[in-house]
């Protein structure tokens, strides 16, 4: 039983940021803008917020500091994503190229700035944000062990974001309009929806969530940051597609990926998997391979937003 709790708790550390970032990607793509810059936005968000944590650690109580850092990550993420929004919406740029530029820029900027400011590229911080046990709730049998022990506040924030995102996307006027812009922007425009505004909102939401995702990915699993989120932005993109651009499936996909990541790094200490003695590489490859297979069988009638990736041209109405 302890093994199950251990795997589950660790999987959550990977799952939550994946869900958050993939939901960000969902808002952007649902509005019609492909955002492969998620990786770069995560790096920028993590960089500024972790620098903030390092600077104020000790003078602000840990949980409050963590929450303030999240706000910084969100704001920085939004600002950075505006570059992508401007290029792909106003300048009608190729969205993949613009995203690639952001992905190149972010780690270079993070390493450059860190080395110019403090001499080394690695930003160290003390990880004192873990909550060993939530009072009362942590004592509930089974569930308490699963989600109220050895947990970070980010888990609950992530769940909150998932619920809110589903409601926004499916139950609000804004969500309907956003989806319309991703499917058929010309029709949406004819119906009086401001496509440009909707797409900006979509990209900015993705910036906010990816920036936040960068911070909450790095903090629980590390005590330093050196300009990289290890390809999690791209993994989140895979989660988004694996999840068919739907919040509930994104959760499922992210959990599957998160569990695979956990197993890859811990397979030798989990009794039943250690007996199989498979190479960790197999678990590492599985999420990517699974995504490819799912794509191969689902892309004929893909659920991808129809207009994603195309600059909006009002003349095509």
């Amino acid at each position: 039983m302890d093994t199950i709790y251990f795997v589950f708790q660790n999987s959550l550390l990977f799952t939550v940021p994946l869900v958050v970032v993939a939901l960000g990607g969902m808002f952007s793509e649902r509005s019609g803008i492909v955002n492969i810059a998620l990786e770069g936005i995560m790096v920028i968000g993590a960089f500024f917020s972790i620098f903030f944590i390092k600077t104020f650690q000790g003078s602000i109580p840990p949980q409050l500091l963590f929450i303030l850092a999240m706000f910084i990550a969100i704001i920085v993420g939004v600002l950075f994503s505006l570059l992508h929004a401007y290029a792909s919406i106003n300048m009608k740029a190729n969205q993949t190229i613009s995203g690639t530029a952001l992905n190149l820029f972010a780690p270079a900027f993070a390493v450059y700035t860190a080395r110019m400011v403090q001499g080394v590229s690695q930003i160290d911080f003390e990880n004192n944000f873990r909550i060993p046990k939530v009072p009362l709730l942590g004592d509930i049998p089974v569930i308490g062990n699963l989600i109220f022990q050895n947990v970070y506040i980010t888990t609950y924030i992530g769940i909150g974001i998932l619920v809110v995102a589903s409601i926004i996307l499916y139950k609000t006027r804004f969500g309907l309009r956003l989806r319309a812009c991703g499917e058929h922007p010309q029709a949406a425009d004819s119906a009086g929806i401001n496509v440009i505004k909707m797409r900006y909102t979509g990209v900015m939401l993705s910036g906010a969530l990816a920036g936040l995702g960068g911070l909450i990915f790095v903090v629980p699993i590390s005590t330093n940051f050196s300009g990289s989120v290890l390809g999690y932005g791209f993994l989140a993109l895979a989660v988004l597609i694996f999840g068919q651009w739907k919040p509930s499936r994104i959760l499922f996909a992210a959990f599957f990926f998160g569990m695979m990541k956990t197993i890859a790094s811990t397979s030798t200490i989990i009794p039943f998997l250690a007996d199989l003695s498979l190479d960790p590489a197999i678990y590492k490859i599985t999420p990517y391979l699974a995504t490819l297979i799912v794509l191969a069988f689902s892309s004929k009638n893909s659920a991808a937003p129809r207009a994603a990736g195309e600059p909006y041209d009002a003349g095509k109405r």
């Binding site: 895979a238 590489a281 490859i285 794509l295």
Partner: peptide
């Protein structure tokens, strides 16, 4: 192949193949 016969976006498929390739080569 996925692009030509299964209509899979080559950007996404290539990104997946990047990671598979990296882990496979390490292995």
């Amino acid at each position: 192949f996925l692009k030509a016969y299964r209509n899979v976006n080559e950007v996404i498929a290539s990104i997946m193949m990047n990671y598979i390739g990296m882990y496979l080569v390490n292995f």
